[in-house]
Design a protein around this nucleic acid. Sequence first.
DNA 1: CTCCTTATGCCAACGCCATTGACCTTACGC
DNA 2: GCGTAAGGTCAATGGCGTTGGCATAAGGAG
Lengths: 234, 234
Amino acid sequence: MPKRVVPEERRRRRRPTRSGRVLSESLIVETALRLLHEHGSAGLTARRLGLALDCDPSTLYRYFRGMDDLTLAIGDALIGRALHGWRPAGPWREDLRAIGLRIHTAYLSHPQAAVLTASRVSGRANELAADEAVLDVLRTAGFPLPEAVRVYHAFIDTTLAFAALDAASLALPDAARRADEDMWHSAYARLPAATHPRLAEAAPLLAARMVTSAYPTALDMLLTSAGDRLAGPS
Amino acid sequence: MPKRVVPEERRRRRRPTRSGRVLSESLIVETALRLLHEHGSAGLTARRLGLALDCDPSTLYRYFRGMDDLTLAIGDALIGRALHGWRPAGPWREDLRAIGLRIHTAYLSHPQAAVLTASRVSGRANELAADEAVLDVLRTAGFPLPEAVRVYHAFIDTTLAFAALDAASLALPDAARRADEDMWHSAYARLPAATHPRLAEAAPLLAARMVTSAYPTALDMLLTSAGDRLAGPS
DNA sequence: CTCCTTATGCCAACGCCATTGACCTTACGC
DNA sequence: GCGTAAGGTCAATGGCGTTGGCATAAGGAG
């Protein structure tokens, strides 16, 4: 029933909960991240969060407009962590590879938030800094502007797309995730060669490979193609 | 409470619902797709589906083990539509490009469903057929088995990842989607060159390009890299 | 130091949701 | 046409997010 959520910086009164704990936006976000880690994708509920913070679930609505607002706040924190401390260090290809893997890893460490935020354009500081860094690596490497933009677009969207896809698998309820993974050992592994010869011969390799992320492979293929263009018509 | 769901092809009795409608797996899936279009990706619930089909929600459990099983069936239907009528026709590169674009297009035509299903592995008929087709194109082109599996993995996951990413944007509420798109004309276009020189110089190109899908570009880069390997060490 | 205002925590309730067990009815194989 | 069990329906369970009303204590004003 709070019509209005008081922004964190305007908060004056800090009234402790019945257990003596003083709440804050960042405390709630940190606790939410912990819950997601401990209890899996279904582990973040207002009720459970209230339990962990020893406050009533409805109290959270004094800090966020709803669970969705809370999730966005969590996602915003992720972007900052991904590139925290990164500096360009080597050849452009290594730098881009490092940036991509950092973003991918950061999102996958909190899959539930990643699923909701990977497809959004926030225009906030950390997002701008990441984009500037990618473009700078490409331009410094000698890519002409239109080509740099082309590669940037493919690079950043491939990275975010894989982050979202791989995060979605991790964010599934345990039962569903296991069922999806087992599929490569069950349905795919037992196909008759008569109807599915190509899948039959590939089954063992698929069972080993498909449970991993294709992002490193796809990223390398993308960088190889970009390198061809840089070297080729120069 | 149905311990066991009777597979569609073994169904003998077709008892109509109280309103006289005869249910079937495909009727349920089609209705679910319609609901997703009308009510958004959170709009598919057993209750609403029961309302639309004029049957009790629990009846659905005679056809699917649960809502998760239903979403897998929806995803398989999308893949089926994507490759309906497709036949290998030309050089492997054209064939793969066609398959990828068909899948991408099919998913984007049902964004709300795509968001739910793009990251799942169902092992159902249409999914198997699509995978068999991709592997067949690669093997016929002369890729050795391990390399074919590598390219297959990167190809199919890149395609599904972009389908999910692009679908997520389309599935956003109108206001949020427009806000995301305008970002490239507002925040990004007005950055001072002092702090973000690379973004500043690229802004006009970004505004034109970032509102489109990077999938065609990324796909071409992937296929180019695969082609290099096929031609190179042969 | 006291008083008043109101921010903020708490309680109870609402209306969703998926899922299940028991029941009942009717379509189909014989 | 009869017996069986497939398949539709009902009612109930325990979760969820969210909200209106209320109680209380924090912190500024004097």
